[in-house]
Design a protein around this nucleic acid. Structure first.
Lengths: 263, 263
DNA sequence: TAGTGGTCTAGACCACTTC
DNA sequence: AAGTGGTCTAGACCACTAA
């Protein structure tokens, strides 16, 4: 038999999914459910904690427990990297990560820091550097309004960015066109990319930094960006609040028996 | 100040990450920590539950609490759809989902059921059908050994698959070459695809079906497969245990100012 | 049978918000 | 001050595993 708290949680979840409790609406107070014979305070609390971990509700002291309203999902396709946007346009930076939402950039929606660090193993491997070699790490925390949505840390080889705006630790965007424009102006035009993604539970640090509600997973994205000759000019690691994003990729079905060498 | 159970959990997490407790190794028993003055049984239990939700440990009655060994990750790239594999080869089915692991197919590693159902909204939209139209749903539960790794449900338009092996509800794979081979033999050669992915917390049903450890997220993948003329021949929804997979996509940086029409 | 983690209670007290 | 959820305790008892 399922535990008492699990049964209570399932009953409440059912009523939430049935629309009986609407997003933003209050659920019964813990003490009321105790009085209604659903169990002791700890038992009811356990049920609410489970619902919270399942992403259905949010509890807060003083306020109560409300049904979690679902945030609109931002769909990320490769068109966000369109050269026209950062090469020819006048758009401010972070286009790649923000243009999909159709929202304009606002000051304060991103913090940035640039540091020279010893390359972590994955970074060194991507750039073809010995472990511990020095690279520039440009870390951003991107927000939507006051709510953080993801972090993004780009790693560059010093010889690719030394002396550019990218390593000038001025707060704010990297300027017109963003990071790829800076690389372009410096003689490195990006040409092809690889994105690798996987989901996992956030670390406690990430929970704090991204202000994640309990139970929300993160998606980690690792992006390798190369020039036409195959040189890696950027390796970036992003950590995204899972409930805010979806990724989309279009491709042709490969045919190794007939394809010519890919360019 | 952080709660007592959080502090205990953080201390233990630190020791796990430092390698002081190795994967598979037992953590101190709850009662021992109670005796050591870490708090009451409930408090220590709360700490262990947090560690479990964070994916660090696994607790089980009678056994104890051990550091969770990390399962090897299967990397999924688009080469798993290579036409040569299912068109020319002799490989058994499910290649697309299994070949990446380098492991051979074994009987009993997949269950299958085929049903004629009313199309759910997303399915109807993908196939360009009115909502509630009938489609074939071919549902698989894929396992690695005895452990389920993901579900995959493909939806087909009846006129594309009627009379083929695909809708023959024989248990086991769809036969030599799998589903795409059947469509190919029936005159529908797949040509291009779209994959959309996002992560979320599993439903209680999915936890049971996939035997997910507490706190493990899932990645939902929605795949639209088209023939060269753009006809959708398959729309599939997969639910993957997050800790077992990573997805990888290679693409050229788009350039809307210069690209010709894409083929 | 002994030992493990899991559930549950009753009640005290804490942290935070609103009035 | 009153009301919310969150923490913590001490102890009883349950479910499961191993010897």
């Amino acid at each position: 038999m399922a535990p008492k708290w699990r049964e209570l949680a399932d009953r409440l979840a059912e009523r939430i999914n049935a629309g009986e409790y609407k997003p933003g609406q209050q659920l019964p107070h813990i003490r009321d459910l105790v009085e209604a014979g659903e169990g002791s305070k700890s038992t009811v609390h356990a049920a609410y904690k489970a619902l919270e971990a399942e992403g259905l509700v949010t509890s807060s002291r003083g306020h109560g427990t409300v049904v979690r309203p679902q945030t609109p999902i931002k769909r990320l396709g490769i068109e966000r990297y369109d050269k026209a946007k950062w090469r020819d346009g006048d758009e401010v930076a972070f286009i790649a990560d923000r243009v999909a939402s159709g929202k304009a950039y606002r000051r304060g929606e991103q913090t940035q820091s640039v540091e020279r660090v010893a390359a972590p193993p994955a970074v060194a491997a991507a750039h073809g550097l010995p472990e511990g070699a020095e690279v520039y790490a440009r870390a951003r925390l991107v927000k939507e309004g006051s709510q953080p949505t993801h972090t993004l840390t780009s790693y560059y080889r010093p010889e690719h960015v030394e002396g550019t705006r990218l390593v000038d630790p001025t707060p704010g965007p990297a300027g017109r066109g963003g990071g790829y424009r800076v690389l372009y102006d410096n003689g490195y035009e990006i040409d092809h990319m690889r994105e690798e993604l996987f989901a996992r539970v956030p670390t406690p640090d990430e929970v704090k930094l991204l202000q994640l509600p309990p139970g929300e997973p993160v998606v980690e994205l690792r992006r390798t960006t190369r020039t036409a000759d195959g040189t890696v000019v950027e390796y970036a690691i992003g950590v995204h609040a899972a409930s805010r994003f979806a990724w989309s990729y279009d491709f042709k079905v490969p045919d190794s028996a007939r394809d010519e060498e890919r360019e």
